[in-house]
């Protein structure tokens, strides 16, 4: 998870010009880091490329909109990284 977090934090820092030290596993991408949906597309593209996966943004957004999930489940970075690890494992 730590290497996943390091990669994701690096992507966010570079994509959104956020100081790396402000990005922690507990950071909420939207509420704490202020990442908007357009920037998140860039982040998703970089994550997809870096890990060879397809982050299911449409499904996650639908679940949040339907009240079946909270944004914390997908956009707090430790949770995001855990889901990335699951997607990588499922691909293997």
């Amino acid at each position: 998870m730590s290497s996943t977090f390091d990669t994701v934090a690096g992507i966010i820092a570079e994509t959104c010009d956020i100081p790396r030290e402000k990005i922690t596993p507990e950071s909420h991408a939207i509420d704490d880091l202020g990442i908007d949906s357009l920037d998140f597309l860039d982040i998703a593209f970089a994550i997809d490329k870096a890990f060879g996966i397809k982050v299911p943004l449409e499904q996650w957004t639908q679940e949040v909109n339907d009240g079946k999930a909270t944004t914390e489940q997908y956009f707090v970075l430790m949770n995001l990284c855990s889901r990335i690890d699951d997607l990588v494992a499922a691909k293997a």
Partner: peptide, 8 residues
């Protein structure tokens, strides 16, 4: 790239 909900 064809992502989920976006394309490049």
């Amino acid at each position: 790239h064809e992502g989920s909900g976006y394309a490049v």
